[in-house]
Write a protein that binds this DNA or RNA. Structure first.
Lengths: 255, 255
DNA sequence: GCAAGAATCCCCTATATTGAGATTCTTGAA
DNA sequence: TTCAAGAATCTCAATATAGGGGATTCTTGC
C-alpha cells in the first residue's frame, strides 16, 4: 500500500496532518512513513521551500503560509462563494439559523462558506469542515440531482448507511425516494446530522449536469414549526436557483 | 533554474496558481513548466488524489478541497489565532478600524485573522493576503524586535525600499530608528501601505527570541488625532503583550 | 565557547522516472 | 444511439536520479 512513486511519497507527508495531529517531528514522520532520514529531509526541504510546511524550533513541522494563501485565492475567486454570500447573509438574518454553502467535490462534501445568526455553535459548520457523505439534507440535495451514471455507484458504496437512515433498502427504493426530493427541489432532514436540528438544502448548478454544491439552512427544531420550515424551504430553493443562474446553470431545479 | 528533483517539479505545479491565474489547462501547464504530457498527467493525478487540485470539465484544473481543509486545520489549532481573536473583537469594537493578526513566516508577512468595524474595505486585509515586507507599521514592529543575526541580512536585502520610506539610508541609521520603536514597544506608520491610513502595530512573541507575529490596528487618518492614536497604541501594546504571555512568551516587549 | 542534536552532504547503485508515440477513454453533438 | 474530437492513459526502452549508509557541517541551548 506504500506509494511507489515519489510524487505520492512527498504528498503523503501532507496527509499526515490531521485534526488529531498538527505537529510532526522528523523522527515521527520517519516512523510513520518509513522513509530514511536523508530522504525525508529532502522532501521536507522541498515542502518548506514551497511554503506548505514550516519548521518550528523544538516542536517539529506544521502547515505553512502557502496553505493560507492558497485558501485565500480560492475564497477570493470562487464564484459560488461570491454569488452565494449575499444569500447567506440574507437568510441568516431572516431566521435564527446557520446558512451554509457546501461544495460537492466528487466524493466529498465540504463547507466553503457559512454564516450563522444564533448564539449556540452547535449547528455551526465553518469553512473547511468536511461533512458526512451519506447523511443529512445536504448530501441528499446532491444525490437527488446526480445523473444516473454518477448516482448508482454512489448508492452502492453507501448502501448500508443510506438504508440505515431510512432512505430505502435497495437501490430501487432509494432512487424512488430521491426522485421525490428532485420533484420538490429541496431536501429536508430532521436531526440526521445533529439531533434536534433541521436541515433544509437545495442544489446549486453551474453549466454542467451534476450539482456542484448546495445552499442550505440548519435551524433548531424548537424554532421551526412546519409552517416555518416550508417558508424557509421555498426561500432556500429560490436562493439556490438564483445562485445557479449566476453561475450559468439552469434556473429551476427541474430535469 | 528548473528544479532537478521531482519533488520540486511536482510542487511547482502548485505555484502556478496565483491571484492572476487560478485555472490552468494541462496544455498551458506543459507550456509553462516544460513537462511532457505523460509526466504532467502523472503529477496531476497525484495532486488530484491528494485533493490539492480538482479538474473541472472544460476549464482545466483548480485548487481542490484539501487546501480548504488544511487551512481549516490551521485556523482551528493556531494558538495565535485562538488567543488573539478576542482582542481583535474588542479593539475593533472600540474604534472604527480594522484589527489584524499578521504572522511572520521567516520572509513573508501574512494576515492570518482580521476583523473590521468600518464600512469601507479599503483597510481590509482578509486572512491569506500577503503583506509588503518593507513597509508599514506591521513589518516595522517585526523588524524592530528581530535579533541582530536575523535583522542585518534582512536590512541588506531591502535597503533600497527601507531608505525610500525614510527609515534611514544606512544599516546603521535604520537600526537606530528601529531601536526607538523597540523602546516604545509599538510601531506607528502614516499612510505607508495605504494613503490616508494609519497603522499601529506591536510584536507578539512565543517562547523563542524572534517575534512570530504582530497585533495591529489600521484606522483612517480622518478618524484618529494624535490623542486617539496614542490611546490605541497603548491598547495595542497591552493586547499584544497579553497574547504573548498566553503563548509562553515574554509579557513585556522590553529586551 | 562548547557539546548534543538536527539537518545536510557525499557518492555509488539500483531503480524509478521520463517521453515519444500509440491507445483507450470521455464528452459533446448529431 | 452512434460518432468523432479531444483528453487522459499506457507501453517500454534508455537513463537520469532518487535513495541510503555513514560522515560532515550547522544549529541551539547551556
Amino acid at each position: 500500500m506504500a506509494p511507489s512513486n515519489s510524487a505520492d511519497r512527498i504528498l503523503s507527508i501532507l496527509s499526515l496532518f490531521t485534526e488529531e495531529r498538527l505537529e510532526w517531528t522528523p523522527e515521527a514522520m520517519m516512523e510513520a512513513l518509513g522513509y530514511s532520514r536523508p530522504t525525508l529531509y529532502r522532501y521536507l526541504k522541498s515542502l518548506k521551500e514551497a511554503g506548505l510546511l514550516v519548521s518550528m524550533p523544538n516542536s517539529g513541522f506544521t502547515l505553512g503560509p502557502r496553505v493560507v494563501e492558497l485558501d485565500f485565492l480560492m475564497r477570493k475567486s470562487d464564484p459560488l462563494i461570491l454569488h452565494g454570500e449575499p444569500h447567506l447573509e440574507r437568510l441568516s438574518s431572516a431566521w435564527p439559523c446557520s446558512a451554509l454553502l457546501v461544495r460537492w467535490y466528487g466524493n466529498k462534501l465540504l463547507c466553503v462558506s457559512s454564516r450563522r445568526s444564533t448564539r449556540d455553535n452547535i449547528t455551526s459548520y465553518p469553512r473547511g469542515r468536511p461533512m458526512p457523505l451519506a447523511r443529512g439534507a445536504i448530501s441528499r440535495a446532491i444525490l437527488a440531482f446526480l445523473p444516473r451514471r454518477q448516482l448508482l455507484p454512489m448508492i452502492e458504496e453507501n448502501l448500508a448507511e443510506l438504508s440505515r437512515i431510512g432512505l430505502g433498502d435497495t437501490a430501487e427504493a432509494i432512487t424512488a425516494n430521491l426522485r421525490q426530493i428532485r420533484r420538490k427541489g429541496v431536501a429536508v432532514a430532521h436531526g440526521e446530522v445533529t439531533p434536534g436540528v433541521v436541515g433544509i438544502a437545495a442544489p446549486v448548478f453551474d453549466a454542467g449536469q451534476a450539482p456542484i454544491a448546495t445552499f442550505s439552512i440548519t435551524i433548531s427544531a424548537d424554532l421551526a414549526n412546519d409552517q416555518t420550515i416550508s417558508e424557509i424551504s421555498s426561500t432556500v430553493l429560490a436562493s439556490a436557483n438564483e445562485i445557479s443562474s449566476k453561475l450559468g446553470g439552469r434556473h429551476d431545479a427541474e430535469t
